[in-house]
Design a protein around this nucleic acid. Structure first.
Length: 201
DNA sequence: CACCCGATTATCT
DNA sequence: GATAATCGGGTGT
């Protein structure tokens, strides 16, 4: 296991590249949330890319609106949305300079710090159920809709991502995205192989 | 204002 | 495998 505490916060330039590439390279990085005085963190093991107007599954497939405007804004900011009226999902805005919109959904991670807090938030028996889904991460980390739009590259902020060494391509793969009906065939989901924290599909 | 529906999850059978 | 829970965005009247 790497010593992630020595790693630096990902810079804005990391997110100013093709959305699908950023989704791939976010595997292994560490999501951190400062919740009151608690530092909650986890290693990202599953992501999905959502692009702009060519990607009908994306919230940014059509016009800019009140909800999706963050996806059109500066890269490196958090796009948080409520799904099915129940769950908050965490994305990072990422796109190439010429693209209009794009974000990476963080779908699953391995808890690293404040595991007792995460267990209290989630109240489940099996540890692999703590954070193996996008809505589960939102609940586990205490994320709310108020967090949408925050700059995740700001050291003074309460939500950011730490760098980590790049993974070997032998250790992860891609697949179709989960839970969508439009533009279903592109291989824009990335996950670490043989990892117990990846969602079960 | 009414309607439809979704980047999900927990809890059944 | 099927389904309820629950709410706000988007669309059209």
């Amino acid at each position: 296991m790497i010593d992630y505490k020595k790693e630096k916060i990902l810079k804005r330039s990391f997110f100013e590249r093709d959305t699908v590439l950023v989704a791939e390279e976010l595997l292994g990085k560490v999501l951190v949330h400062k919740y009151n005085n608690i530092l909650v963190s986890g290693r990202i093991v599953e992501t999905e890319a959502y692009c702009g107007s060519d990607d009908l599954a994306s919230h940014a497939a059509h016009k800019k609106s009140k909800r999706n405007s963050v996806m059109f804004g500066p890269v490196g900011h958090a796009y948080i949305y409520l799904i099915y009226g129940l769950h908050t999902c965490i994305n990072v805005v990422a796109r190439a300079p010429e693209a209009a919109a794009g974000a990476v959904l963080i779908r699953a991670l391995e808890p690293l710090e404040a595991i007792e807090f995460i267990e209290k938030q989630r109240n489940v028996r099996q540890s692999y159920n703590l954070t193996n889904g996008p809505g589960k991460i939102g609940q586990a980390f205490g994320i709310s809709l108020n967090d949408t739009g925050v700059d995740m590259t700001n050291k003074e902020g309460h939500l950011y991502i730490l760098d980590a060494p790049a993974l070997s391509q032998n250790n992860y793969t891609c697949s179709k995205r989960i839970g969508i009906t439009k533009n279903p065939d592109v291989l824009w989901r990335f996950f670490i192989l043989n990892n117990p924290w990846v969602s079960r599909y």
